[in-house]
Amino acid sequence: MNPKILEGKVALVTGGARGIGAGIAEVLARAGAQIAIGDLVGGKHTAYRLADHDELDATLARLSNAGVEPFSIHLDVTQSASCNSALAAVLDHFGRLDILVNNAGIVRSGLVGDLDESDWDQMFAVNSKGLFLMSRAALPALKESQGAIVNIASVAGLQGHAGMSAYCGSKFAAIGITQSFAQEFAGDGIRVNAVCPGFLATAMWLDHLLPASDAEESQEERAARFEAMMNKMVPLGRPQTPDDIGEAVLQLATAPNITGVALPVAGGAIMR
């Protein structure tokens, strides 16, 4: 692959202020793309803290180091007006859009009896409906560029788990939406695929999913405990990293004859 295969292209990464989205943005930037980051910086969620301004600034600085001038927009993927104006801002700034990465997502675990209806709704609003609102807003620009959409689903979109009904349901939906979009947009020359990350040491795991420990624990100790847990759970014996997910996004975004797939990047934790 030409290392600058995305030269002249523009990518929008939702939820790109930190975590996986930031890693995806960096890989695409290194491949030559101009980068727009859309994120609900300072947004509220009941289970853990979403991205803040410091995290966004750190990501923007890393992108600048990778040689691009990133463009950052405030975005709430659950609001159609916000999606539409974010898209307009990207087009205004860069003049085009080639790759939409729907990465924004939230998680909350909880047994059915403990899950608030509002949490359920919020997870589906971000993880499922967000794909609809954002992709609909981007469709005309992607038609023009013959571009691609990559949705960040999850291994949770391929297998259910106790205590994860809302998250898994919203991610199964994301894969169904991916397949449907792939068929619907193919005639317009737009490819649509999903990447299914397995287990990464981002806020989702470190600040929420990782079971609490009895003792006081530093952030490093939590990260080490996460790593040890994944070493046992994952056939390849390690968690995945944001740049692993970014490389898979890059591959699917540039493969001219792949559409409608959901590719697990999970060290073999799920196989299909």
Partner: peptide, 13 residues
């Protein structure tokens, strides 16, 4: 780039 992908059958169709 795919060091954490294993056990998959990738469709190119």
């Amino acid at each position: 780039a795919a060091r954490n992908i294993t056990g998959q059958s990738l469709m190119v169709d």
